[in-house]
Design a protein around this nucleic acid. Structure first.
Lengths: 183, 183
DNA sequence: CGATTTTTTGAATCATATCAACGTACGTGG
DNA sequence: CCACGTACGTTGATATGATTCAAAAAATCG
């Protein structure tokens, strides 16, 4: 983690719980408070919402070295509206809300860590909103492909489509169109 | 501001610069570093990006008691990609980046203030992304209308349309459709 | 008032979704 | 190591929400 000393990283790690999760296991689900923030040591996760028509919309991914949770629920400690599910067998560090508060209280640098993280998250979602508002499906896919090539190879296409805000069929067509080029 | 004592509010206010701006005045523009975070005392602002086709897309509004800037530029102190423009004659408090750092350094509670603000901003943009991904234009407008009735009356419709991710013509049609009902 | 800004309306079109069916690959238990 | 089931990807036909362009109407402003 950026900005922390080795000792602080050790302390933070110790304050978390190590957990193995199997593919398809749910770590957060609607109606239940998101008890933890999850740091991915190994594996891959997806957070998503389900719309009234039953369609899943991916809000976020996390692979190694990313955090994931339903941030709104975690922050407010109110019931979640999102799912967080393992896309592979994975290993995570779980940090619970009360422990996070205690850490921040005891040492400013944790608060700085989480402030910077929140600022990055805000900038990240703003970028995605901009992309959703200003780019065509094709442009969004091309941008994603260059930004996260590892994710494109690693996760199923229909999940990437739902992350990019298009149907899986449309993404498939995009790929076959321009996809004559090496991929 | 939430979580600050009266003295702290006084100190924060004193650290800012009071500024009057005229309607249409630009406070942030692409290519120039966003020097400040702006707190609206009176008036209204819009931040927006312009896509390659020249179409404006509203990223954020701010009326009294809201902050606004190009957060990515402000945080990184790199050139902005957005515009921030006054939609009315307005009065703002400007907080510059270096002063913000100094305040946070001197007193944890400012860092807490900005951490909470960043967390709210992240949740806000995530909600907007969810809306863009999962709702029809009509649903997005209805939600906006109930969430921010004051803004709907106060700002031109074509700006609201661009905030909601639809053309001004389409919003106009939505309004005449269901808008037989009182508005 | 006249000028500018904002909203509305109509017609044509487009990007993308949906539904349905089929093809392919994969992993897991026998 | 094969076979079967489930998960994933592709393709075609059709539908639709929303955009674009153009122009007129309405509101606001100096």
């Amino acid at each position: 983690m950026p900005g922390l000393s080795t000792d602080e990283v050790v302390e933070l790690t110790a304050a978390c719980t190590l957990r193995q999760v199997k593919k398809r296991e749910l770590l957060v689900q609607p109606g239940v408070v998101a008890a933890h923030r999850l740091y991915v040591l190994q594996g891959a996760f997806q957070s998503y919402v389900v719309d009234p028509a039953g369609v899943e919309h991916t809000m976020h991914f996390a692979i190694e070295d990313w955090w994931i949770t339903d941030l709104t629920s975690y922050r407010s400690q109110l019931p979640a509206t999102m799912y967080v599910v393992a896309l592979e067998d994975s290993t995570v560090l779980q940090l619970d809300f009360a422990t996070e508060q205690r850490l921040m209280h005891g040492n400013r640098r944790y608060e700085t860590l989480f402030r910077l993280q929140a600022e990055r998250a805000a900038a990240y979602y703003q970028r995605r909103l901009t992309a959703a508002l200003t780019r065509t499906a094709e442009e969004r896919y091309e941008e994603f492909r260059t930004a996260y090539p590892a994710v494109v190879q690693r996760l199923p296409q229909y999940i990437i489509a739902s992350y990019l805000g298009m149907s899986k069929e449309f993404l498939s067509r995009l790929r076959s169109r321009s996809g004559a080029k090496k991929g």
